[in-house]
């Protein structure tokens, strides 16, 4: 089980990293690339805290081998905001609506929410709840999270941001 060197684009930056085949993407992001915004809550794809975009698609990075990301593009929560001072509208809405408590599910929630809004900018409440059903939260009862996402529907800003981030161009 020799380490392999993989090259991937993370949040727009080309990165090379040597990984053993049994390393998962979340482990590589956190332990090797020091992108600790992505959380590991279960390791079995059930909690969604590790959600990242792989070639623009939201996936569980704990169910993805790091070697699978070779030659591909990964966006993590650190790459969602357009700049260090400006946030993605979903991030702003989470803050304003009190959708954050302990914050451990938050990076994954934010990533799932932004992915939904880029796919369905006019999502209604059932769609939001369905889209977030792969992200567990133990603090908020999801109420304010759903409110925050719905607040982004209709202002039009999320679609563009989400699409850009989803393509790894943000």
């Amino acid at each position: 089980m020799e380490p392999r060197t993989i090259t991937l684009t993370v949040n727009g930056d080309r990165r090379c990293v040597a990984v053993r085949p049994n390393l998962t993407l979340v482990e590589a992001l956190r332990d090797e690339l020091h992108l600790t915004g992505t959380k590991q809550g279960c390791g079995t794809g059930d909690c969604g805290a590790c959600t990242v975009y792989l070639d623009g698609r939201p996936v569980n990075s704990c169910l993805t081998l790091a070697v699978e990301a070779d030659g591909r593009s990964v966006t993590t929560v650190e790459g969602l905001a357009p700049s260090g001072t400006e946030l993605h509208p979903v991030q702003e809405a989470f803050i304003a609506h009190g959708a954050v408590q302990c914050g451990y599910c938050t990076p994954g929630m934010v990533m799932s929410s932004a992915a939904l809004l880029s796919r369905e900018p006019a999502a209604d409440e059932p769609s939001v709840r369905h889209a977030l059903a792969g992200n567990l939260c133990r603090c908020t009862g999801y109420t304010k999270i759903v409110e925050a996402v719905l607040a982004c529907v209709g202002d039009g800003s999320c679609g563009a941001h989400g699409a850009a981030a989803a393509e790894g161009k943000a």
């Binding site: 992108l35 600790t36 590991q40 993590t76 929560v77 905001a81 946030l87 991030q91 954050v100 990076p107």
Partner: peptide, 18 residues
């Protein structure tokens, strides 16, 4: 709104395993 929320939505908040 909570002052720690910004760090939590951007992934900047530091938990022990981080």
């Amino acid at each position: 709104p909570r002052p720690d929320a910004r760090a939590k939505v951007t992934g900047a908040a530091i938990y022990t395993d981080d």
